[in-house]
C-alpha cells in the first residue's frame, strides 16, 4: 500500500489519511463578495502540478499539510500547519440591525 509520512505519527498506510483539499487563503466571510466566497468554497486549481493540500490523519485527528504531485502521486513533503498558520482564526458574526 502507498504510504505517507505523518508529521506527528510517522510513516503510515495511505488508508489512514483523509484528503482535505487545496490550501487556500480564506477571504473575510463578512466583507467579501459572493463571487469571492464561491471562489474560495467551490473553485479549485485542479491542475497537474505539485499542490499544497490539507490532510487528516484520522486515527489521531491530526490535520497537517502535504505537498504532493497530482500527476505522479509523489508526496514531496509533509509538515505541521503551524509552518503556515501561526495564529488562531477567529470568526465573528456580522452585526445585524434589529438584533439585540
Amino acid at each position: 500500500m502507498k504510504m505517507m509520512n505523518c508529521p506527528l505519527n510517522g510513516l503510515r498506510n495511505i488508508s489512514e489519511f483523509v484528503h482535505g483539499g487545496e490550501v487556500k487563503e480564506m477571504p473575510d466571510p463578512n466583507s467579501c463578495s459572493d463571487d469571492a466566497w464561491a471562489e474560495y468554497v467551490f473553485y479549485t486549481e485542479n491542475g497537474i502540478s505539485v499542490v499544497t493540500e490539507w490532510w487528516l490523519h484520522a486515527p489521531s485527528g491530526y490535520w497537517f499539510i502535504a505537498e504532493r504531485h497530482t500527476g505522479s502521486d509523489e508526496i514531496l513533503k509533509t509538515y505541521d500547519p503551524s509552518v503556515l498558520f501561526n495564529k488562531r482564526v477567529e470568526f465573528s458574526a456580522p452585526v445585524t440591525e434589529g438584533m439585540a
Binding site: G21, Y43, T44, E45, N46
Partner: peptide, 16 residues
C-alpha cells in the same frame, strides 16, 4: 476539464 479551462483562462468548481 479544469486543465483545458485553464488554457481558456478560468477556473472550474471541479476536482478530478
Amino acid at each position: 476539464s479544469s486543465l483545458l479551462a485553464a488554457k481558456a483562462g478560468f477556473k472550474m468548481p471541479i476536482t478530478t
